[in-house]
Amino acid sequence: MGPFFSGNWAMIIEESRLAAAKQSGGISSSAIYNAVIAAAVDANPAPATILDFGTGSGQLLPVLADHFPGAKLHAADIMERPADLPEYVTWHRGDLNHEAPIAAASFEMVFAVEVIEHLENPRHMIREIARLLTPGGVAIMSTPNTGSIRSIVTFAARGHHAQFDDSNYPAHITPMGEVDFARIGNEAGLKCERFFYTATGMVPKLLSLRWQDLPLVGKSLRGRRFSDNFGVLFRKPIDARLI
């Protein structure tokens, strides 16, 4: 837990983080899964080892098994291993606010789908993922999009980004933008290759209506301003020093 927290305080913090993880449900939308899988397949269609970092209930794992049938799948989360998780998945339990109980340079591909907004220190998380990647390895992350029209309007009207209101707290605590990922990734020694967007976003004040469902213009409303979530693809340099 670190030098500043021990005994009862450590237990309180861990229980609080576990409760927040359970609140989120550990499930993302099909639009997010489709976007991250497309980015991953384009970056490396046949990784040998994959880690789902912050897997939650494990909903992404069957999708990964379908798209990367030859890969050895691992999952890490603060929660206990789900009872229905397939036996082919290796589970690593730990508080991801700290160093994961996994050896360095273990994975050719790491997914962190809708995870970073749950953690207290985004710099630590990205450094940790850089540690876990093999040289040349790829990391794919996604998070709520602070640059969408919905989020900008919400911030102007209410003082917080979309998906960071009281109903999402304390599960969602750390909003991130593209510039944050680019800066932190560079600090961690990762190359930011590109950002990508889910092309699914809700119209402010009309959350039952998507931009993409608007008549005539909906199909053209994609990208940063019209996506509720976005992702980033990092690559660890092939000549990176192993830690």
Score class of each variant (00 low, 15 high):
157 A>T: 05
111 F>V: 00
14 E>P: 04
11 M>G: 06
146 T>R: 14
41 V>L: 15
157 A>D: 10
195 F>L: 09
231 G>V: 01
69 P>Y: 06
38 A>C: 06
88 Y>P: 03
236 K>W: 00
112 A>G: 13
60 L>V: 07
190 L>E: 01
159 G>T: 00
124 H>R: 14
101 P>K: 00
118 H>I: 02
146 T>I: 15
207 L>A: 03
52 D>Q: 09
124 H>W: 11
60 L>K: 00
141 M>C: 15
122 P>S: 01
135 P>E: 00
52 D>M: 02
35 A>C: 10
220 S>N: 06
160 H>R: 09
4 F>K: 13
145 N>E: 11
226 F>V: 07
104 A>M: 06
184 I>W: 05
189 G>R: 09
166 D>I: 01
87 E>P: 05
185 G>D: 09
237 P>L: 12
121 N>D: 15
204 P>A: 12
54 G>M: 03
72 K>T: 13
55 T>A: 15
140 I>K: 14
186 N>A: 14
199 A>C: 13
110 V>I: 15
203 V>N: 07
139 A>I: 12
223 G>F: 04
240 A>H: 14
17 R>D: 05
185 G>C: 06
20 A>P: 08
95 D>V: 09
45 P>K: 02
33 Y>Q: 13
81 R>G: 04
222 R>K: 15
206 L>W: 08
59 Q>V: 07
143 T>F: 12
220 S>L: 13
24 S>W: 10
127 R>P: 04
20 A>F: 08
14 E>F: 10
133 L>I: 00
29 S>H: 11
162 A>K: 09
